[in-house]
Amino acid sequence: MQFDFDGSAPLYQQLAAQIEEMIFTGGFDEGAQVPSTTQLSQQLHINPATVLKGMNMLVDEGLLEKRRGLGMFVRPGARQKIMECRKDNFYNDYVKKLLVEAAKLGITKEHLIELIERGEHDGTIKH
């Protein structure tokens, strides 16, 4: 388990984002226990309260659940929840802007589809 902190956001947010990424990519399976606050704070050399704040963010988002006396576990459906949230963010962050710019340039829906297909054929998009 590798964590990288870059200083651009508060540590607890970076920690939460990296645990979320591990859930999404299969580093933590649904139902699996995640390392304890103490383990993470010792491993990462950060305050346990900071770790707890990040973990609680994931609990609030419905990705982790606390089991009294046992620790934190990945909730069933967490990966799908992350996928849906990321799809929404992709639409809001990229697709809407693409459509606005395409309209400014007079690019039609058909031309956009051609451009996407061109990206598939020239190796830009890899499946």
Results as ranks from 00 to 15, higher is better:
residue 3 F to H: 01
residue 5 F to I: 04
residue 8 S to V: 11
residue 8 S to G: 14
residue 9 A to C: 11
residue 12 Y to S: 03
residue 15 L to H: 02
residue 17 A to H: 04
residue 18 Q to S: 09
residue 22 M to V: 03
residue 22 M to S: 10
residue 22 M to T: 05
residue 23 I to Y: 00
residue 25 T to N: 09
residue 26 G to W: 07
residue 26 G to L: 07
residue 28 F to R: 04
residue 32 A to H: 04
residue 33 Q to P: 08
residue 33 Q to I: 08
residue 34 V to M: 11
residue 34 V to W: 02
residue 35 P to V: 14
residue 36 S to F: 09
residue 38 T to F: 15
residue 41 S to V: 02
residue 41 S to R: 03
residue 45 H to Y: 15
residue 45 H to C: 08
residue 46 I to P: 01
residue 48 P to H: 04
residue 48 P to R: 03
residue 49 A to I: 10
residue 51 V to C: 05
residue 56 N to F: 06
residue 58 L to G: 00
residue 60 D to Q: 06
residue 63 L to P: 01
residue 69 G to T: 08
residue 70 L to V: 09
residue 70 L to Y: 10
residue 70 L to M: 15
residue 74 V to F: 04
residue 79 R to L: 13
residue 80 Q to L: 15
residue 81 K to D: 06
residue 81 K to M: 02
residue 82 I to E: 00
residue 84 E to C: 06
residue 84 E to G: 11
residue 85 C to Y: 05
residue 85 C to F: 08
residue 86 R to K: 08
residue 87 K to D: 08
residue 89 N to D: 09
residue 90 F to D: 11
residue 90 F to V: 11
residue 92 N to S: 10
residue 96 K to G: 00
residue 101 E to A: 14
residue 101 E to P: 04
residue 103 A to G: 15
residue 103 A to T: 14
residue 104 K to M: 14
residue 104 K to Y: 13
residue 106 G to Y: 11
residue 107 I to G: 00
residue 112 L to W: 10
residue 113 I to P: 03
residue 114 E to M: 13
residue 116 I to R: 10
residue 117 E to C: 14
